[in-house]
Amino acid sequence: MNDYSLTEFLMRIAPALGRGALVSIEVALVSAVGALLIGFVTGLARLSPHWYVRLPFVAYVELFRSTSSLVQIFYFFYVLPLVGIRLDAFLTGALVLSLNFGAYVSEVVRSAVQSVNPGQWQAGVALNMERAQIFRRIILPQAFPVMLPALGNYALELLKATSLVSLITITELTFAGSQLVQFYGRPTTIYLAVFTIYLVMALPLVALNHHIERRAGGVWQGKVRHK
């Protein structure tokens, strides 16, 4: 179909793949923000002493954790319009990824908060602090570092999962690659290029996660020593 040399060909497909990669990053960032918001609210709600507060959030988490993200994407894409909810493909993809990863993030948040020694809460009460103050000033700052390694891993999983939205017509990196294959052929070059670009996008996250894992545990001790 074409006789370009490898370099020429790569130059030709680079702009389309670059645009696709940017869309992938965009989907990942929007979904990450959404997942963090949903995950924090859900994780905290699940710590409520009242069962009727916990119930809807437990149902949501179980529903999204027990089914496939791709099935969820297709479900939202095909079924929501039938019941009168019309979102564009980008929003549908970002919404489903937010809900899907939000369910996992909520587990991370919940278990991190529970991992804080109960004596910390008691000390806050003994100093007559309000519940919200104890939570914000005492519990969360200690729970947050506990969350980081798991959140880092989910960030990487989320970046990979953005490839799924290619199947609902969002022209991110994978879909851009598939379109180029349809147009030019040469699947080897194109899919290897796509693969490599994903790897390059993932590497900063891989390095960050490596760094977080090595630091895990020594958070408070480090503060003064490095002064």
Binding site: Q120, Q122, A123, M129
Partner: peptide, 28 residues
């Protein structure tokens, strides 16, 4: 009116010694 000192200290590990002492007077 009540203060308490615990068996396990329960100091806030993310605050310095003086930060621990300042926290409640400032917040509460």
């Amino acid at each position: 009116h009540i203060g308490m000192v615990f068996q396990q200290f329960n100091l806030f590990p993310h605050m310095s010694a003086i930060g621990n002492v300042m926290e409640a007077p400032m917040q509460v």
